[in-house]
């Protein structure tokens, strides 16, 4: 069942646990701001997971130094690029979530999503 590499891949394991924490925050928290924090934890965990993929022990960051262009000198650049793209996505999504939250707060003066649904039902729109 359990494979051989759980403790060698401790970085990935930590990322997974963080992902779970963020995921459960997103599901369980009632407060919208806390949900958004959970979302950010989740995204960051995925980036940690990705960054772990690129690492090769004892090699340098992928910026050509002193003209050395040997594949054995640098770590894998692809995951770094993917993380960069991912970060922009998570910034955008966070901004949208925050602005949605602000609109709801201005209207209903609460951050509790269930409370907001109940008030909506009361408004009977």
């Amino acid at each position: 069942m359990l494979g051989p590499n759980l403790f060698t891949n401790y970085g990935e394991a930590v990322a997974i646990i963080l992902f779970g924490i963020g995921f459960s925050n997103l599901l369980l928290q009632k407060n919208l701001i806390k949900k958004i924090i959970g979302l950010n934890i989740m995204d960051t965990a995925v980036y940690l997971y990705l960054a772990e993929k690129g690492y090769i022990a004892g090699r340098a960051a992928p910026i050509v130094t002193n003209g050395v262009q040997d594949a054995a000198a640098y770590i894998n650049p692809v995951p770094s690029g993917l993380v960069l793209t991912g970060i922009v996505v998570s910034v955008s999504v966070t901004a949208i979530m925050l602005s949605l939250t602000m609109r709801l707060y201005r209207r209903y003066h609460t951050l509790d999503l269930d409370e907001i649904s109940l008030r909506l039902k009361k408004e009977g729109l």
Binding site: L39, M97, L100, L104, I116, E123
Partner: peptide, 14 residues
């Protein structure tokens, strides 16, 4: 923009 759609958008985003 009414309360319903914004709440639906939040749920959709989550």
């Amino acid at each position: 923009q009414n309360g319903r759609t914004i709440e639906a958008a939040v749920r959709y985003m989550i």
